[in-house]
Simulated assay, not measured.
Amino acid sequence: MLPSLDGLLFAPVARPAQGEVDPGTRFAYRERDGLVWAGYRGGEIVHGHLVGTRTGNTVEFRYVQLNRAGETNSGHCVSELSRLADGRLRLDERWEWESRAGSGTSAVEEVLPGR
């Protein structure tokens, strides 16, 4: 199993076609005893939260967010954790909106301090 997400910062690689997060969004992860949560903001997102669980290298969570247009949206995501060649962590995500139509895939990668 790969290391804990606790205290790590992640950023999206790109903006997915039906998504709202983009490379300007930052996710601040916490993890304890199989529980995972994060706050996120930046880009089109004013305020977002996710909460879920981790089993091995799989993270499953629900998210809710407020965008710059003043709209709230929510959904479900299953992510697979892996390690990049440079040692950083990556989450490959399969997500689906629950508050509206749409689904997709995306990825977030660890942002090293000072970047």
Rank of each mutant, 00 (worst) to 15 (best):
L2N: 13
P3R: 11
P3C: 06
P3F: 01
S4H: 10
L5N: 12
D6R: 04
L8Y: 03
A11S: 10
P12T: 03
V13T: 12
A14T: 12
A14F: 15
A14W: 14
A14G: 03
A14I: 11
R15Y: 09
P16L: 09
G19I: 12
E20R: 12
V21M: 14
V21E: 14
D22T: 01
D22I: 04
P23Q: 00
G24W: 02
F27Q: 05
R30A: 15
E31W: 08
R32M: 09
D33A: 13
W37C: 10
W37I: 08
A38G: 15
G39N: 14
Y40K: 11
R41E: 15
R41H: 14
R41D: 14
G43M: 07
E44P: 14
E44D: 14
I45E: 10
V46K: 07
H47S: 11
G48Q: 10
G48P: 11
H49A: 11
H49C: 08
L50S: 02
L50D: 13
V51I: 15
G52Q: 06
T53H: 07
T53M: 03
R54A: 00
R54V: 04
R54F: 01
T55E: 10
T55P: 01
G56P: 12
G56K: 07
G56Q: 07
N57C: 02
T58E: 13
E60T: 03
Y63M: 00
V64D: 05
Q65A: 10
L66E: 05
L66I: 05
L66R: 07
N67K: 03
R68E: 11
R68N: 09
R68W: 02
A69R: 14
A69T: 08
N73Y: 10
H76Q: 11
C77F: 06
C77N: 15
E80D: 15
S82F: 08
S82H: 11
R83G: 01
L84D: 07
D86N: 05
D86I: 00
R88T: 04
L89D: 02
R90P: 06
L91A: 07
R94P: 02
E96Q: 13
W97C: 06
E98G: 03
E98T: 12
E98H: 04
S99K: 00
S99N: 01
S103H: 10
S103L: 03
S103K: 10
G104P: 08
T105F: 04
A107C: 05
E109R: 06
E110D: 01
E110K: 00
V111D: 02
G114H: 00
R115D: 02
